[in-house]
C-alpha cells in the first residue's frame, strides 16, 4: 500500500530523515516508533504532502501520483497530533467544510458524516460547537473528518497524546475497529504498550533512520531474544533437566518447582523434537510457551537509550 523509497530530508547540514525505505502492506495497522527528533513526524508530513523531501519517493498503492498532488491527497487521511478548531463552527458544519474541501457534494457529505459520527460515537454531538468538545472527542472527530473522503491510507500522528486514559482506550478501540474494516493505518505513538497491543507491524526509527521494521510477532520475538521458552512439568522434572542439559544449543536458565526456563538457538522443528523427547522419557508436560518480548526494552536497546 505505502511504498517509501530512499526518502531523505535535510535541513542544511542536519539530516532529519536519512535514506528511509519502507513498505506497508494493504490492511496493515503500522506503528511508527522512535524518540523525539527521530524523524517520524517529518516522514509523516512528507507523505501527507506537508513537507518537501530532499530526495526519495513516496507511492501509494498502484497510483503513480506524486506527493502533494490532488490525486495523492485523495488517498490519504491525516490526523495530526494537535489540531485547533474554529470558534462558532458546529460539528456538522466542520464535517461539511472539510468534505467540501475534497470536492464532495453536500448530500454525500451529510450522509457520510452521519455514518462516520456514528462510528466515532459523536452522533449526538452533531449540533454542538466543535470548541466545546473534550480533547478526546475532538480527536475522534478529527478521525471522522480524515475518513470523510474515504482515503486508502489513514495516517495518525500521536493520536493519544494529551488524552486521558478513557479517551485513549476509546481511540484504541476506534482504530482497531477501523483496522477490522480493512483500512490501512499508520500511527506514530510514544505509548509502546498501546502499539504492541493493536498494531500488526511496527517500525522503529532513530536519528532519521529506520532501525527495524516488521510484523509485530517477529519484533516481539526479537525483543525477547526470541529464544526463551517456559516448560511446565507435572512430574519428571529431574529427568527433564538432565535431558535438556544434554542438548546442544540449549541452556537451562532456571528450574522451579514445576517449571524450567530454557534459552536456545534452535529452530521450531528442533524445539518440537525436544518436546517429543521429553514426552518419550516419561516427563509429564502441562504447559509450554515462548516468552513474549518487551517492546520497551527492545526500543531502548535499539535506540541506544534515547529518551522519548
Amino acid at each position: 500500500m505505502l511504498y517509501i523509497n530512499d526518502l531523505t530530508k535535510k535541513y542544511g547540514s542536519f539530516t532529519a530523515v536519512n535514506h528511509l525505505s519502507l513498505h506497508i502492506p494493504e490492511g496493515d495497522l503500522f506503528g511508527f516508533v522512535g524518540p523525539n527528533g527521530a524523524g517520524k513526524t517529518t516522514t509523516i508530513r512528507i507523505v501527507c504532502g506537508l513537507l518537501k523531501a530532499s530526495s526519495g519517493s513516496v507511492r501509494i498503492g498502484s497510483s503513480e501520483a506524486t506527493v502533494g498532488t490532488k490525486e495523492m491527497k485523495r488517498l490519504i487521511g491525516y490526523v495530526p497530533d494537535f489540531f485547533g478548531v474554529y470558534d462558532n463552527l458546529k460539528v456538522r458544519e466542520y464535517m461539511d467544510f472539510y468534505g467540501s474541501m475534497y470536492g464532495m457534494c453536500s448530500r454525500d457529505i451529510a450522509k457520510l458524516s452521519d455514518d462516520l459520527l456514528e462510528l466515532v460515537n459523536l452522533s449526538d454531538k452533531k449540533e454542538f460547537y466543535v470548541d466545546t468538545l473534550s480533547r478526546g472527542m475532538k480527536q475522534r472527530l478529527c478521525v471522522a473528518r480524515a475518513l470523510l473522503h474515504n482515503p486508502k491510507l489513514l495516517i495518525l500522528d500521536e493520536p493519544s497524546s494529551g488524552l486521558d486514559p478513557r479517551a485513549r482506550v476509546e481511540m484504541k478501540e476506534l482504530l482497531k475497529n477501523l483496522h477490522s474494516m480493512g483500512k490501512t493505518i499508520v500511527i506514530s505513538s510514544h505509548i509502546l504498550s498501546e502499539l504492541s497491543e493493536m498494531c500488526t507491524s511496527i517500525g522503529i526509527m532513530s536519528h532519521g533512520q529506520l532501525i527495524t521494521a516488521g510484523r509485530i510477532e517477529d519484533i516481539m520475538r526479537q525483543a525477547a531474544g526470541g529464544k526463551r521458552i517456559h516448560i511446565q512439568i507435572a512430574s519428571g522434572i529431574e529427568i527433564a533437566v538432565r535431558l535438556l542439559q544434554e542438548q546442544v544449543g540449549v541452556i537451562v536458565e532456571s528450574v522451579r518447582e514445576n517449571e524450567i526456563i530454557i534459552s536456545n538457538n534452535n529452530t521450531d522443528e528442533q524445539i518440537s523434537a525436544l518436546m517429543g523427547l521429553l514426552i518419550q522419557n516419561q516427563v509429564v508436560l502441562t504447559g509450554f510457551y515462548r516468552e513474549e518480548g518487551n517492546l520497551e526494552a527492545l526500543f531502548m536497546q535499539l535506540t541506544g537509550g534515547d529518551s522519548q
Binding site: L50, I76, Y78, F82, F83, G84, M101, G103
Partner: peptide, 15 residues
Amino acid sequence: KERQTFDIMLTTCMS
C-alpha cells in the same frame, strides 16, 4: 497556522 488548522487544510484537495 497559530490555531494549527492550516496543516489539515493543506492536506485536502484545495490548491
